[in-house]
């Protein structure tokens, strides 16, 4: 079940605006790695590069799944999804005019995922009983916290080998942020998921992180090999706490 992600020297830009400069990082099998940074530092862009939604200008992104290496450069997004890489997009991005159940079924749009659709749906409803209660409700009519749960569950419909979560805390009340983080923790503990999570809510992110990176202006400014290293870091104090 081993799957890992290696990002090497990735540069990315929107037109002439450089967003990522020589970003390198790794996520090993079974790890939860957090990518910390405030708004506009390139977290989402890096996520989109992995998914093939934004094309890096240079550098390599390689995923190893069951001992087989796949270079993601030049692969279409749907092929990357086929490898078992799922993204929970920033701001949830549900299909608001479809029902909860339809949203989940669409998480398994790929043929590969459709083979296991019933098992995965049952699994999602088991993890998120709330969604089972609301399955015929329109996704757009649920609360923010429930929508975030649905966004997570939709990604799980792929039975992903590598789960990318982009800022799960965006637009949620603090108590819901805490609950969302707990849910992610529960999922990764129970199912040994490999997770890369971008987040700017530093204390919440560290609750589930094994290690992490700090990204500043499109460059990795600091690599924390453990939670402790991230916790006692001057750079982070300066950027996050204003000390």
């Amino acid at each position: 079940m081993a799957s890992s992600l290696t990002i090497e020297n990735v540069d990315a830009a929107y037109g002439s605006v450089r967003v990522l400069e020589g970003v390198s990082m790794t996520v090993n099998a079974g790890e939860t790695v957090v990518l910390l940074g405030t708004n506009g530092n390139g977290k989402s862009t890096l996520m989109k590069c992995v998914m093939g939604i934004v094309r890096p200008k240079s550098g390599r992104i390689v995923v190893e799944i069951d001992g087989e290496k796949h270079d993601l450069a030049g692969m279409a997004t749907e092929q990357i999804v086929d490898l078992g890489i799922a993204l929970v997009p920033e701001g949830r991005r549900l299909f608001p005019r479809l029902t909860v159940e339809e949203n989940l079924l669409l998480g398994a749009f790929r043929r590969k995922a459709r083979a296991e659709i019933n098992t995965n749906l049952a699994f999602c409803f088991e993890c998120f009983p709330r969604l089972a209660e609301r399955k015929s409700q329109l996704a757009g009519s649920m609360s923010g916290g429930e929508q975030q749960m649905l966004a997570l569950a939709r990604a799980l419909m792929l039975a992903p080998r590598l789960l990318l979560i982009d800022e799960p805390s965006v637009g949620l009340a603090p108590v819901l942020v805490s609950r969302t983080i707990e849910k992610i923790k529960e999922l990764k503990d129970r199912y040994k998921l490999t997770v890369l999570m971008a987040e700017q809510n530093f204390p919440q992110a560290l609750r589930i992180a094994d290690r992490g990176y700090v990204i500043v202006h499109g460059q990795i400014a600091f690599e924390g090999r453990s939670v402790d290293e991230l916790n006692n870091n001057d750079l982070i104090k300066r950027f996050y706490l204003g000390l």
Binding site: M51, I53, V81, D82, R93, F95, P96, R97, L106, L158
Partner: peptide, 23 residues
Amino acid sequence: SQLGYGFATIRDDELAAEASGVP
């Protein structure tokens, strides 16, 4: 059909559609 659901995802949110593997 599956095609129709794919179309609906594009209408509702194209980025999310891509993230779900809709070509």
